[in-house]
Design a protein around this nucleic acid. Structure first.
Length: 413
RNA sequence: GUGGAUGUAGCUCAAUGGUAGAGCCCCGGCUUGUGAUGCCGGUGGUUGUGGGUUCGAGUCCCAUCAUCCACCCCA
């Protein structure tokens, strides 16, 4: 070992083959399901101007105030590694001049960066699968987006998930609710935990999802946003639920759901599991009707969500081993060039083929077994001269001599 | 950022302050062209790193790094 051990940065992990296979299962499900809803993939920059997140997520949020990898580059520009995907998507939507091109339905898959204390299901570089819909006026779009999220997770076959929805109200009704909540909290301030006392004025809605049991007890009678919605938010929320019922998407209302990012309004939702410890949110999102205007575009309704790729992959259970169809075992130095040619031909038929590299038959069969090869094609001097190969089925142990054309058909079955 | 637990072979783990081990993996052998079961042998560790205490430290102390768990936050 070298003088100094070189290792990855804290909280930033390598995607080794077994893990990447699990990721690919998640990605494949996303592409398939999102495709059926006519969403298109976009690939957006990892590096963005720091200002973008300050203006969208909000300066006071933890993400912006202490978790961003932000720095000044050699030209003096303030840039950062993106901590989430929505702001960049909006920026691209505006920059791409798409505001007059009708509604946009986008999804993306890629790394995000947040300098948090690492934990299970919480990394400093992690991957999100995100969905954004620009031009999504009504509750119908909310219901369809949620149905799509539900279909995506169903496609993955993950059980034990729960969809929770809430309404955060809008600029018309939220301030009054907020006042009512703050008043309620102040009445019993001395019964709340220390962090909640701090949160009470800074971000009172956050108190609602405090995990301290005594706080939750005090909150049982707290005013809930759902009961303070203005008429239009009220009907929006009702419309969403009607849509979910029509689409048979199971859900329940959780008035405690709050979003950490400033730009959300009305519909907020989370899909949670109890199998991931403290990091149980597997997918979350909501409506953000004000953000596009906030970033300099025309007033545009929008809704989206993001799912944690690693978290989903952890719920998948053991992934399938890599598939190897054929291992080529070659016996005799002089047969090696010929065996290489035959391996190449088998690959042209679309099989995954490993060449065992010669040497003793025992060594090569052992290697074939380790690779999990379904079949072994044995080529020795005799086979070469006769233009055939010995095909062994590794599961059954059966073995037969066949011409290459026949052999291809046997393996296909 | 706060609190707690843990770092010994590639992996999972042993080792009353007194010579660092096992299982699995890997490599080779048990007749000439046959794996996954058996038998035999072999490679592989400055015990995360740096200090300290001690005649002597994997073991005790301090620091540091990393992982895990919880808080916090969030996907």
């Amino acid at each position: 070992m070298a003088a100094k051990k070189l290792q990855s940065i804290r909280g930033i992990h390598d995607g080794l083959p077994a893990e990447v296979r699990a990721w690919q299962r998640v990605e494949a499900a996303a592409r398939k399901v999102f495709g059926t809803y006519a969403f298109s993939e976009v690939r957006l920059p990892v590096l963005e101007p720091t200002e973008l997140f300050v203006r969208s997520i909000g300066e006071a949020t933890d993400i912006v105030s202490k978790e961003m990898y932000a720095f000044t580059d050699q030209g003096g520009d303030h840039i950062c590694l993106r901590p989430e995907g929505t702001a960049g998507a909006v920026r691209a939507y505006l920059q791409g001049g798409l505001t007059r091109s009708g509604g946009q339905r986008w999804f993306y898959i890629g790394p995000m960066f947040r300098r948090e204390r690492p934990q299970k299901g919480r990394l400093r570089q992690f991957q999100q699968i995100g969905v954004e819909m620009f031009g999504a006026p009504g509750p119908l779009e909310d219901a369809e987006i949620l149905a799509m999220a539900h279909a995506f997770l169903s496609e993955l076959g993950i059980g034990g998930l729960q969809l929770e929805i809430n309404s955060l109200g809008c600029t018309a009704c939220r301030p009054a609710y907020r006042e009512a909540l703050v008043a309620y909290l102040h009445e019993r301030a001395d019964l709340l935990c220390e962090t909640c006392k701090e949160r009470m004025d800074k971000n009172p809605m956050r108190v609602l999802d405090c995990k301290v049991a005594s706080c939750q007890a005090e909150l049982s009678a707290a005013p809930e946003m759902v009961n303070h919605l203005c008429a239009s938010c009220e009907s929006h929320f009702a419309g969403l639920q009607a849509g979910l019922k029509a689409l048979q998407v199971p859900y329940h209302i959780n008035a405690r759901i709050v979003r950490g990012l400033d730009y959300y309004n009305r519909t907020a939702f989370e899909i949670v599991t109890d199998q991931l410890g403290a990091q149980g949110t597997v997918l979350a999102g909501g409506r953000y009707d004000g953000l596009i205007e906030e970033l300099g575009g025309p007033a545009t309704t929008a809704i989206g969500f993001a799912a944690g790729l690693e978290r989903l992959a952890m719920l998948l259970g053991d992934s399938e081993p890599a598939v190897v169809d054929i291992a080529v075992v070659v016996l005799g130095e002089q047969v090696i060039p010929y065996s290489l040619q035959q391996a190449a031909k088998l690959r042209q038929h679309g099989f995954s083929v490993v060449h065992c590299g010669g040497g003793s038959a025992k060594r090569q069969f052992k290697a074939a077994d380790r690779e999990g090869a379904r079949f072994v094609v044995v080529i020795g001097k005799d086979e070469m001269q006769a233009g055939v190969a010995t095909l062994k089925n590794m599961a059954t142990g059966e073995q037969q001599q066949l011409a290459f054309e026949q052999l291809v058909n046997v393996i296909r079955d």
